[in-house]
Amino acid sequence: MLSCRSLRKSYVSERGEVLAVDGIDLDVEAGRYAAIIGRSGSGKSSLMAMVGGLSRPSDGSVVIDGTDIWGLSDDKLAAFRNRRLGFVFQFASLLPTLRLVDNVALPALLGKRGDADIYGKAATLLARMGLGDHLDAYPSECSAGEQRRAAIARALINDPVLLLADEPTSDLDEQTEIEIMDELLAVNRELGTTLVLVTHNLALAEQAGQIVHIAGGTIAS
């Protein structure tokens, strides 16, 4: 389902070239929950960005569902991200000027999906996340946990094959963290969506079917 080969990412900083990811090979089977763990600065977020088509690798390839995503043109890659991938970031990633229902519907609207009932589906997803009575609320009127659940709903609006979550609970309290993880695991289990989660919390990774430990830009175990 997901296959990375010789992935490499280097940045140029004032102190010279920094190697964030150094030749990683990774395979994740369809429908699996894989956790990428590692300390801060280990390169796990850079790896996730390359896997998600958000950051062009310095070298190597990422193949998702048979498509070499970095061989696509800019617009085709954008369309691929839109239709096949879902993202949950480690920060409040909703557009502050849109209502929750607009935020959730936005990827479907951007992708010009033919589905006439985009807003109906957005409402259903928000209801599934326990936010059925927050459709018209603005992000600033919601708690951090509610915002994160809305971000999960947004990630699911186009029925992605791969859901990528980059430390989605790092800024949440313990109870909310558990609730958000339950939602993500439910999506993986009930919808069969492949889930790749980046975290530095070992406890969250324990339920994963595959754990990848990154250190110094390479796979440690």
Partner: peptide
């Protein structure tokens, strides 16, 4: 964020 969710 807009790019990440598929904006061209």
């Amino acid at each position: 964020l807009l790019k990440a969710i598929g904006a061209r």
